[in-house]
Simulated assay, not measured.
Amino acid sequence: MSENLALESPSMSRRQLLNFLTGAVVATTASTLLYPAAKFFIAPSEVSEDGSILAKDVHGNLIPAKQILAEPVGTRALVAGLNAEPTYIIVESDGTLHPWGIVDNCTHLGCTFPWNANENQFQCPCHGSRYDAEGRVVRGPAPLPLKLVKVKVEEEYIRFSPWIENDPRTGEKPWWV
Rank of each mutant, 00 (worst) to 15 (best):
R169P: 11
V151T: 07
S129Y: 12
G135Y: 02
D50V: 08
V73N: 03
P72I: 00
L144M: 12
I90L: 14
P143I: 08
Y88Q: 03
A55I: 07
S52P: 02
V58P: 02
T87H: 03
R136N: 15
E156F: 07
Y131V: 09
P44F: 09
P145F: 09
N61P: 00
P64K: 14
E49P: 00
Y131P: 05
G101R: 01
V151A: 02
G110M: 05
E49A: 11
E134V: 13
L146C: 09
V137F: 09
A65S: 13
G135K: 01
F41D: 07
L97H: 06
T107V: 13
I63T: 11
Q123L: 11
Q123M: 11
D57C: 05
G74S: 04
N116Q: 10
E134Y: 07
R130Q: 15
V149I: 12
N61K: 14
S93F: 00
C111M: 11
I90A: 02
S93C: 00
N116G: 01
P64G: 13
G95D: 05
A84Y: 06
L109R: 15
P86N: 11
T96C: 06
Y131W: 08
E119T: 14
G135A: 09
E154T: 11
I53H: 06
N116A: 05
S48E: 12
L69W: 10
L146A: 10
D132G: 10
H108S: 05
L69Q: 07
D50T: 13
H108G: 02
N83C: 05
R159C: 03
P141D: 10
D50K: 10
Q123F: 10
E165G: 14
L109K: 14
Q67E: 15
